[in-house]
Design a protein around this nucleic acid. Structure first.
Lengths: 183, 183
DNA sequence: CACACATGTTTATTAAAGTATACATATGTC
DNA sequence: GACATATGTATACTTTAATAAACATGTGTG
């Protein structure tokens, strides 16, 4: 969310430094006030599309070059403290490790299923691909008339555009990693 | 500028209709108020990046899919009434036919040069490519130590990253079409 | 027909984006 | 050293993006 502002801040400052021009120069070229440009470069602004448009047009650059994240950077996530949703009376738990980001295009979950736990998902939008890897235990994935049992170390890829179900048929806690790829 | 808003309006409405969901549904999925979404769909809004981010994230789509222009559309430009800049005491006139647009990446000029008129351009930023076509008359293009004469029907392509000069060496009005491609 | 519910529009209010101006700090230049 | 110019920062103000709630308009359903 304010990841956006950071990217913008970084890219704008980078371009301005590469061309070695001042905030006044950019303000004159784009029609955006110097104060606002300073705020943007500090990542303390939440500009409107028209402001971004003016910056991109005035600097003769594309949107993507303004919104792109810096090439090299670390982002650390943890399953501890990750927001989670419970289903099947708390016996099926979904932890959102990497939430969806428009720049990335996919999201990443960790799923814990108590013995016998199950969860049913409605059909996602067209073009969604689901990748499930079993970390521990055993799971049955059902989608339409298809059924598949996967165990520790195995990965199943399937199209999520129809209703599907996860089920733990083993006697132990089953742990999964799930990647949801959109579009 | 409000081209942006139109694209956004079109794409958001299209996606919402494809999925056949209501404004309330989208509001709930994205955290953006229904009223604001309605404004955006009508092209009467100028949303902030965080709002666009929320929409893209909530709908699990990319930025580009939100900002892309509708596939088929007409845009008509005219050299009449086009904003123009004069140089060399009005004997060198530049008409901006298609102004730069961040989605397009290039801009289009028409240039009129009285006999003997000349214009010098400083070096553009790295990676700019200039394409000049003579509509009528004759012109000399100089860039660094290079010189080239082009006449009616001829086109010259050169890198604009160094200072360069246009000159009309003929006895008649010379008309050029110039494409400036950035990055 | 009356009622409930869903969907988009309008309105009033709040929060914040954007501008213009003044301020502080450097960096030469005579 | 004093002055002029350039550059980024802070402040006061205006405009408007964004929200929430009320409103209008369908669309079935018993």
């Amino acid at each position: 969310m304010e990841q956006m502002s950071r990217n913008l801040a970084f890219q704008l400052k980078k371009i301005r430094q590469q061309r070695s021009v001042s905030l006044d120069d950019v303000a004159k070229a784009t029609g955006v006030s110097k104060a606002q440009l300073a705020q943007i470069e500090k990542g303390e602004a939440n500009p409107t599309v028209s402001t971004i448009w003016k910056i991109a047009a005035g600097l003769r650059i594309s949107f993507s070059s303004l919104l792109q994240p810096p090439i090299a950077h670390f982002m650390k996530f943890s399953s501890k403290n990750a927001p989670h949703v419970d289903e099947d009376e708390g016996r099926y738990r979904v932890y959102s490790i990497i939430p969806y980001d428009p720049e990335r295009g996919w999201e990443f979950y960790k799923v814990e299923m108590e013995p016998g736990a199950r969860s049913r998902s409605e059909a996602h939008t067209e073009g969604v691909e689901e990748t499930v890897t079993v970390i521990h235990g055993q799971a049955v994935i059902s989608a339409g008339v298809m059924h598949e049992t996967i165990t520790e170390g195995e990965t199943l890829v399937f199209s999520g555009h129809q209703a599907h179900e996860y089920q733990n048929i083993s006697e132990e806690l089953t742990v999964l990693h799930v990647i949801l790829q959109y579009k």
